[in-house]
Nucleic acid binder design. Sequence first.
DNA 1: ATGTCTCAGGGACTGAGA
Length: 258
Amino acid sequence: MKIATWNVNSLKVRLPQVQDWLAGQRPDVLCLQEIKQEDRDFPLAEIGAAGYHACFSGQKTYNGVALISRDPLSEVVRGIAGFDDVQQRVISGSLNTASGPLRVVCVYVPNGQSVGSDKYQYKLRWLAALTTWLSGELAKYPRLAVLGDFNIAPEDRDVYDPAAWKDQVLCSAPERAALRELLALGFVDAYRRFDQPEKSYSWWDYRMMAFRRNRGLRIDLILLSGLLADSCQSCTIDKEPRRAERPSDHAPVSAELV
DNA sequence: ATGTCTCAGGGACTGAGA
């Protein structure tokens, strides 16, 4: 069972790359962020032709998330219960697997713009609401995976230049503390369960040739509940799509579960 | 060193967001 996450920065623009990646990788579930389109524009036929089902929560211009799956998902829920938000950032669904039911939550955490800004305050409020909600979800669904663009680099080793990024948005202490609180519910960062190459990142700014210079951050994460973590065989970042013409600024991240 | 990309509005560029 392969689950994956990818911030595509416009599904309209990246659809050919998503199709290629689905054909090459054949994930069971792919979580997409920043699809940047309204639900009526979702490319259901193209995703269907690739042999996949989809559910999605989109809006005009910004944000938007989707779950692409080989089998149809059940119990699909949009957003964070108890947290009204016009920004479409969360979608969840369930899948039956040989090892039992799997609950998948796709998240697009707010970017936060800059420390202290209104958007930063919203990011921290949003993360607190997410953690409160996930605490209940975890009780309901012990085999729970949370995948997405967290817009937080968990540790300095996830940052190409920690000194330059110290106390900046994506790396600030309050953001990292919020992520630690979420993890403390009983989640594991799947990527760090395995030996990984040094300087592994999942996002590189489009500017300043950041990708060629590997000036990146690891902000796209797969968090697994304790039960699922034990069944995780690998977790990898696929840099190949980032080398494409007109790439997303993010690379997909995958985890293999048994 | 705010250098790139995407989208919207409006019909060339500018601004927002990341």
